[in-house]
Design a protein around this nucleic acid. Structure first.
Lengths: 341, 341
DNA sequence: TATTGTCGTGTGACCGGTCACGCAACAGCG
DNA sequence: CGCTGTTGCGTGACCGGTCACACGACAATA
């Protein structure tokens, strides 16, 4: 009478054989039930389902992966530095992947050294991922991915677009610079992101291209590290050595740091100098002054990237349609104004 | 002569049997090599290793998991809303886990509805994770975790401490409020985080406790959603209806939004009203004015949580030692000053 | 020289699923 | 009434590792 409440108290998880025994069918029938095979009598399926519920059976994914040679696992190669943008993208990726029946395994780059990158990729490949998605990778990561010739599809998602839509990458940066030019600025500086980030590169190119298109001579961009701290330090330096009326920063954080520097030397934004950022992180609207910036739909970018990857995996992409590229938009706030001199 | 360059071009990944054949040993010997068995003649091991290299053999984790009944997989239950803090913690968790030979599988909560939480947990359990780590969970998630009686260890990591060190949870909040009191403030408001976040709850309790300890009557905290936008809106409202000289916000973002509201009505921080935040996100030092806040070592918290979890899994925690709880520190900047009236 | 123990390696079964097939029962058809 | 086709389900082998055990070679011991 001191029987355990559950039918088997072996401590081991029940297998399809256990379920089959309880339901009075063969293990293959159980397999059919959990795979929604159509060739099943409804009553049989019901019997099996109740046995599954009773035993709290949950299919062993490892066994399934082994037998089918499909892991339904997607590897995410995270960036070295996480930001609002990358987290938002990863989150979107996860939710789309899960809805499609895929799981996510995550790894972050410790550094961007080649060995380190290879180790991270190995780590993912060992889990026999079916696809790889590199979030905001540094530029040096990309050739490594190419060179490795991975046996699975690789999707690169830079925050200015996926690898499949390279055309509009610099558009946002150009819009930002054009805005400054239209306000009447001509001495415009650029604080860029790190040399080896895809996004940084494209935004810098956008700056150079737009300056060029307006017959303005760009100043050599300062290369930063995306942080507010750098924006601050670079700002102190630039304000001492350069005579500019506007700055286009590679992201909002550096713009924020730069604005701090402007105040620190007793000048003000936008009266003395205009500032525009990039990303439109949720805080940018509430900075002082509210920051003019370029908005990105991070979640949308992430979702598109994973959708593309899934469709490359032969997954019927549920009517997501082709990528619509217009996810960059200039948001004008009060950190920009016509030059006073 | 048109042979492929690799020994086998079957398109399938090589198994230990293939390696064994090439090395002229048994598959068991290969298994011993990849598991670093000591009982091996060095020459044999070398032979096998070169065969492994030649075939680019990589052990199939699914098969291993199936045979050993150990997945070496840790499930991460991410929060509904990702912030700087949670990303930093996840990143730290990943790096520690990887170093210990564990892999991470990630899922994010879409909402905090019970069904949704259960679905997310199921999703992780289906992958037969060996442990679960819930990052910054809402309070309602915790009882669900308890009630489910998961067969694996669960580690809850709130950004104010892991579940194992509950004692200092409110300390940071109390320090923040005490700082305001010591400056001479008595009419101090609190903009709290969402009702169902563990952190929000503890910070609120810290506020109430410290007010109480100084015989000050706390105002009922406003419950926000962590965003700058909320801080802004709540600020507009509070500044209209309340007569306070200081505000303690549940996080830096809401503090930032509040400061925006102060400026929006033509008053200033800290002259008219002092503001203190919580978290010390990297941008806080560069806000205007630089924000007084409570610093948290997110990476350290994350690392500690995963270390604890690993040790509960019987992993020899490499001399990490017991958790040192002093990771909260008040950072005084210029958003706080004595009251002017 | 026979016995015992250790070292290094091989053999068969097994983990929990899936796949390809086999097969009984029954229906439709000439 | 026999033939064929379909439906519904069961059997054996297999995925790629690991585990328990067996076994031969050789050294130490009696």
């Amino acid at each position: 009478m001191s029987d355990t409440e559950t039918p088997d108290a072996t401590g081991k998880a029940p297998s399809i054989r256990d379920v089959a025994r309880l339901a009075g069918v063969s293990y293959q029938t159980v397999s059919r039930v959990i795979n929604n095979s159509p060739q099943l009598r409804p009553e049989t399926a019901a019997k099996v389902r109740s046995a599954i519920a009773e035993l709290k059976f949950v299919p062993n994914q490892a066994a399934r992966a082994l037998a089918t040679n499909r892991s339904r696992l997607i590897g995410v190669l995270g960036p070295r530095m996480t930001t609002h943008g990358t987290s938002a993208m990863v989150q979107a990726i996860e939710s789309v992947a899960r809805a499609a029946g895929y799981r996510l395994t995550l790894t972050n780059l410790a550094t961007s050294a080649a060995d380190d990158v290879r180790a991270s990729i190995d780590h993912l490949m060992q889990q026999s991922v079916e696809g790889l998605i590199a979030v905001a990778p540094q530029t040096r990561v990309v050739p490594i991915l190419d060179e490795l010739k991975l046996p699975v599809p690789v999707q690169i998602v830079a925050s200015t677009g996926t690898s499949s839509s390279h055309n509009d990458q610099t558009a946002g940066a150009r819009a930002a610079v054009r805005h400054l030019i239209e306000l009447g600025h001509s001495r415009i500086l650029h604080i860029a992101g790190p040399r080896d980030w895809v996004e940084a590169d494209h935004r810098m190119r956008g700056y150079l291209a737009e300056m060029d298109a307006n017959d303005l001579t760009p100043r050599p961009p300062v290369l930063g590290d995306w942080t507010a701290q750098f924006g601050f330090e670079a700002g102190l330096e630039l304000l001492r050595t350069e005579d500019a009326t506007a700055v286009f920063a590679g992201n909002d954080h550096m713009a924020l740091g730069f604005m701090h520097a402007v105040r620190a030397i007793g000048r003000s934004v936008p009266e003395d100098i205009s500032v525009v950022g990039f990303d439109d992180v949720p805080e940018s609207a509430h900075l002082w002054p509210p920051l003019t910036t370029v908005r990105q739909d991070f979640a949308g970018i992430g979702a598109r990237a994973i959708t593309d990857l899934l469709s490359r995996l032969g997954e019927s992409s549920d009517a997501v349609g082709p990528s619509e590229p217009d996810h960059l938009r200039l948001i004008v706030r009060s950190s920009t104004a016509p030059p006073s001199r």
